[in-house]
Write a protein that binds this DNA or RNA. Structure first.
Lengths: 198, 198
DNA sequence: ATAGCTTCCGAACGATCGGTTGCTATATTC
DNA sequence: GAATATAGCAACCGATCGTTCGGAAGCTAT
């Protein structure tokens, strides 16, 4: 019924699958993302969907990668390219809050959901998630260290501790937004941030 | 093969099911908890398991309730009955940290996992989870308000903001413990707490 | 024109899902 | 001791899971 598409269209089909897969996974979880559901949503056969990846795990990895690209596009790439150090750290956190506030994905922050879903398992999917999380936290740490080096933060600042607190602010933001639908949460997050990196 | 048991044994069987179900759900999630898996683990038939609840959703609710009882036993009931206010608030948070540190359930904090799993759905299971979360946060708020009233916290303290920050500390603790297996996380949590309600 | 490559479909696979049905064996009640 | 109630089992239901297979359809290179 559906013959071969040109190379450009083929890539486009793959992108359609991954995009829709990310939307589903952000709501139902990476395990709740099923081939059949994906095929139905896209008006394709299950074989047609799986043909692009071969395996559900590969598809999950593609979705995680897509989520990482979305996050990169929506957060770090929106950080203006001003001076490094405290200003950049602040801008990164503000972009982070705005990203959660904007409800970019229908199911809240994909990485928060995926991390808690896979945090007690093994395998490449868990590793990919943990890796993305680690990269972002490393970037935070770098700017925090620069801020200390610039004298913008106290010299005895525990950078690891600061990143821990920043992550907590974001996890709480996601929690209060998604579970309690608390519209005051972003303001709370910003207040916590200004207390941490004023 | 397995005939009727005495009333006492019957209750015990139900408890065995719910206990094992909680253990599974804390690792695989509430949806990953399947009747067949539960039956196999317990050496029972699926009908024998489901007979106690009638429906998977009822079973999930029973597991959520059991998780709430475990949490109650492991956290608030371990808080010494000293004076209310800041001292009690501190004790509650310390018990909370110790609970996460102790790895009471194999998959980390059950409510954190369940909350992120169900935060974008509807239905009674989600409501039960959100309700349990709300009760604990209300208890925190009560003690925080008392602490303000006692003059143990600044009079202009934003109690909602404080609870937001405390929840963030705990979510971060669970995150760093489970995903990054960072043994320094409990110490970080305690340091954050002493900064908030030191 | 033709051969090859690739995308996608239709169909089927074994396994497992939540759930139902009929039965047996026993505990409880009379 | 007879009657009743019920925990649990074996078997099965239709649906769906991830995955495989053969072939149809069309692009591309010869």
């Amino acid at each position: 019924m559906s013959p071969r598409k040109s190379v450009a269209e083929t890539r486009l089909t793959r992108r359609r699958i991954v995009d829709r897969g990310l939307a589903i996974a952000s709501m139902e979880g990476l395990e709740g993302l099923t081939i059949g559901r994906l095929a139905t949503d896209l008006g394709m056969s299950k074989a047609g969907v799986l043909g692009h990846f071969g395996t559900k795990e590969t598809l999950q990895l593609a979705v995680v990668d897509e989520a990482a690209q979305v996050f990169t596009r929506e957060v770090p790439e929106r950080v203006p390219g001003g001076p490094t150090g405290l200003a950049r750290l602040r801008a990164m956190c503000e972009a982070w809050v705005a990203y959660l506030e904007r409800h970019v994905l229908p199911g809240g922050c994909f990485f928060t959901a995926a991390a808690t879903e896979f945090d007690d398992r093994g395998g490449p999917v868990r590793d990919a998630i943990a890796g993305m999380s680690a990269v972002w936290q490393r970037d935070l740490r770098i700017q925090a260290r620069l801020a200390v080096h610039n004298g913008e933060l106290p010299a005895d600042t525990d950078v690891g501790q600061l990143v821990y607190d920043l992550v907590g602010v974001m996890l709480a933001l996601n929690h209060f937004l998604q579970l309690q639908c608390d519209p005051a949460a972003p303001e709370r997050a910003r207040r916590s941030l200004s207390r941490l990196i004023g």
